[in-house]
């Protein structure tokens, strides 16, 4: 008979063995070690720089010397309310809201199909279709869109071939949102924003719908809910956290973007461009910082309102 096994094996030797025994005895130690690097990063680099930014926005610039005056003042924020600056904020928020609403309506059916009907190969195809645009360069996509939307572009040609040129001209003749061609109008900016941010709306909605068990929908029908009522009272409330998550992406990404409106659209500024100009050419860091605070405040308000409306009750 071979040597009998002891009731308890001997302690492990070697540094790694002892270390892993130690971690087993003190699981909190392991947790602290694992969490320390990301917490330091988040706390110092990320939150720290945000606070530094916030501080900048409470400074002001001396209009004669162009030097930053390091005294706390709300003067820079008051400047945001000047018509020229306030227009930029209104324009950006309106665009972000329009992009978010359009993305929701386009994304929901796609997400619904993917979550409730697509299986196996179709599901893989869905993920590929949604993610594929994210793999290519953002700039290339936007310049491609500029070509598509240009006056000599494929869209103009398509409308012409289909005999729909008057429709296109009618759309472009609309006040404010129209323009000389799609590529220099707000409509063009809007189309490209929706195109670029759509995946960020589809994926959270799909994830939320995926978690709605089929038997809840059956239960609604069983209790007498017509399909429309089942959607309104069961599917939609349960998908709402996903819609909110997606809208946070599309809304905040549109609020902060400065490349798309620069390449496609009228030459009027969006918040991102204003920040870019103020901190660069104009050298007005406090105003740039104040502009940056605007999206943060708007997102905060948005989330607060969403929570009050019970958007997260189903979480």
């Amino acid at each position: 008979m071979s040597a009998e096994a002891a009731g308890i094996s001997a302690s492990r030797t070697g540094v790694l063995g002892r270390l892993s025994d130690l971690f087993w005895r003190r699981p909190n130690l392991l947790l602290i070690l694992m969490l320390a690097p990301p917490l330091l990063w988040l706390g110092i680099i990320y939150i720290g720089s945000l606070i530094a930014l916030l501080l900048q926005s409470f400074f002001s610039i001396d209009e004669f010397s162009g030097l930053i005056n390091h005294e706390f003042t709300l003067k820079t924020y008051a400047e945001l309310l000047r018509p020229a600056n306030f227009d930029i904020i209104v324009r950006t928020v309106t665009m972000a809201a329009a992009v978010t609403i359009a993305s929701t309506f386009i994304a929901f059916p796609i997400a619904y199909f993917a979550a409730r009907y697509a299986r196996g190969k179709w599901k893989a195809l869905f993920y590929l279709g949604v993610m594929l645009p994210l793999w290519s360069s953002y700039l290339v996509k936007i310049y491609a869109w500029k070509l598509i939307l240009a006056k000599e572009g494929i869209l103009t040609w398509l409308f012409g071939t289909l005999g729909l040129t008057p429709v296109l001209d009618g759309v472009l003749a609309l006040p404010v949102i129209g323009g000389n061609s799609l590529s220099v109008s707000y409509i063009g900016t809007f189309i490209v924003f929706v195109y670029v941010w759509l995946p960020y709306m589809v994926l959270p909605i799909q994830a939320a719908l995926e978690r709605v068990p089929n038997n809840l929908i059956e239960a609604a029908a069983d209790l007498g809910a017509r399909p429309r009522q089942g959607f309104r009272f069961v599917i939609l409330p349960l998908a709402l956290p996903g819609i909110i998550a997606g809208s946070i992406f599309t809304f905040s990404l549109t609020l902060g973007d400065y490349i798309i409106p620069q390449i496609i659209g009228s030459s009027r500024l969006f918040i991102g461009q204003a920040v870019y100009t103020q901190q660069g050419t104009a050298g007005n860091i406090p105003l740039a910082a104040a502009f940056t605070v605007v999206p943060i405040v708007i997102m905060g308000l948005y989330l607060w309102m969403a929570k009050r409306q019970g958007a997260f009750d189903a979480l």
Partner: peptide, 25 residues
């Protein structure tokens, strides 16, 4: 009407609203 195996209660509604669902619709 059906009592489902895992009950299929609506997680976002409270008990009263769950029970009253059939009347509501």
């Amino acid at each position: 009407n059906t009592v489902f195996q895992d009950y299929a209660l609506f997680p976002h509604l409270n008990v009263i609203d769950n029970v009253a669902f059939g009347l509501m619709v």
